[in-house]
Each structure stands twice: as C-alpha cells, then as structure tokens.
Design a binder for these strands. Structure first.
Lengths: 148, 148
DNA sequence: CATTAACTCTAGTAAATAAGTAGGATATCA
DNA sequence: TGATATCCTACTTATTTACTAGAGTTAATG
C-alpha cells in the first residue's frame, strides 16, 4: 500500500506544479488547500528538498517551488523517496537490491521470479509517468503518453 | 511490500504442489522443509483452506493437500487472501474497491489514475501466473507462458 | 534593529500492523 | 483409549505509521 505520507507528497507536488515557479508557495497554503497536516507536510517537503525535487526559500516571503519542470518529476522517484523501493521484495528491487534473509536459493526462487516481473511492470509505469502527464490529460492513453 | 506471511503461504503451496495430492503432507513437514514457524503456518494454511485453495485432513494420518491442480492456483489469489487487495490504494482496487477517506474528487484524482494503471499491470501478471507456471519453467517467457 | 513570519531540525508519542506464541479443543487412527 | 494430527481463540512483542511539540535559523519590513 502507498503510505498516506506518499499521497501527501504527491498532492503537494501536484499543487506546486500548478503554481508559477517564480512565486514560492507557503507550506501553510499547501496544507490548507490539500488538507494535509502542516507539521507533517514540513517533514515531507524537507525530504523532497533533500532529494532535489523542490527548492525552498526561508524567511518571511519564503515557501516552496518545484526544482524541475513537471514533466521531469516522475511518480517512481517520489514513491522511492517517501516509501522506499517499488519492488514488493528486497531481492526483487533493482535500485535497492537486498538479499532476503531467509532465502535458500535466489536463482531458483519462484516467488522472486514473479515479483521481479511485477516490479518491472510497475516501474515501467511509474518511471515514465510525470506530474505533467496526469495534470492535463484524461485517463486515456496515459502510458502511451509517457513514451512506452 | 509482500508480507512474510504471504511468502510463507506461497512457499507452502509450492511445496504442496510438488507432492502427490492423494498423500496429504503434515504441517510439521512443510514447516521443517521450508523453515516456516509451525504454529504460524497452521494459521496460514487454515486461512488458505477457508478460501478453498487446500484441503485438510484431521487426526493421526492427517495433513494438507492442494484443493486444485497447480495450474489453477494463481499468485494473485494467494496474495489477496493473505495480504489483501493488490492495489496500492483502496480506491484503485477492482476486487475490493473502497473510497479514500480524504479524497476530494475521485474522478479527477491524478494519483488514482496512475495507481489504477499500476494495479492493472500487476494484476495482469499475478492473476495469470500459476504455481505450475513457475515450477518447471525458467525465468524466460513467464508472462507469455501465462497466456498474455 | 527588533519583530514577525517563514522554513529547519530533533524528539517524542499514540495507534495500528506484523510476526509470531501459547494452549486447549476436536478429530482420527491404530 | 492413547497418540498425534488439525482447529481455534487469545495473547504478546516489535516495528511502522502518522502524526505532534517545540526550539532553532533565516529573511523581509516597519
């Protein structure tokens, strides 16, 4: 399951994507408009900032703005930052591979075989769908629109 | 993430799939061979039984056996029984749809759009890959072999 | 130049979930 | 009827999730 935190992150990013990058938006504005707990959102935006997705400005006229254009921010990256690897098993992750502690033989593991397929098809979607892809377009041809 | 419980369930089913259905297997044998905590495995098999995936026999010569042939048991069903819906969001599930509590407008929700795509591509794999599909075959052509 | 209002950062906390354990009840076979 | 298997309810312990609190830092402004 996607965490609440990841949903908040996506909502915040989509909100920032609608704003002008030259006018940073207050955390409190995003929190109010998207009904996200403000203090929680602070932590989330900080995390997104550390990973280079947003810029922040301190002081009285501070706020947040996207660090890239909406077509350069992919859902896969956001989810990895907030929730960790896309794969359902550590041993099926390609960006954060880890052995399963209790796995006898990874080469022949039937579960891993299946979950690798799932992780790949998931990543194919999430790493090719940007904020821009879902902002204007309807639900049709989303994946094709992402260049697959 | 796939729960440990779901992994145990799959391992147990794959183990039963290798056995003759006319000779039920003791929980203790599966637990030993697959290194699954026995009492925990009891609960898991009971759950799989209630959902019709396995048969059980009580008393001294009791044990468990598959209730279907391995080509009729799909990973999707196993995961749904043990871990719940495949979708990453309640509102993106097709077998167990539920509204997200904090969603303003489901029709226009960008996050849902994306997660619906992910859930569909995941289900396409998991609901078309059976125990039999991974038992003999190698890793190549897994999905094609499942009839996609 | 002090005040105000924004972001930054470290902790802490309550509730839910995950991963088991314990132990008795029930069924079957020899 | 005793041994040994599954069945079932309840409990426990650790981790994770979803926040909250509060002090610190930075920058505009009157």
């Amino acid at each position: 399951m996607l965490s609440q935190k990841a949903k908040y992150a996506m909502r915040a990013l989509l909100y920032l994507a609608q704003a002008q990058p030259e006018n940073p938006v207050f955390i409190s504005e995003i929190a109010d408009q998207q009904s996200v707990p403000k203090k929680f959102l602070e932590l989330i935006l900080l995390d997104l900032k550390r990973h280079g997705l947003v810029h922040s400005y301190r002081g009285k006229k501070g706020g947040y703005a996207l660090a890239k254009t909406p077509d350069q921010i992919y859902f896969g990256q956001v989810i990895r930052i907030i929730d960790g690897p896309l794969a359902q098993l550590p041993c099926a992750s390609r960006t954060a591979y880890r052995r399963c502690d209790d796995c006898e033989n990874e080469q022949t593991c039937e579960i891993r075989q299946v979950m690798l397929q799932v992780r790949d098809s998931t990543a194919r979607i999430l790493d090719n769908t940007s904020l821009a892809d879902v902002m204007v377009k309807g639900t049709a041809e989303l994946v094709e629109g992402a260049g697959i």
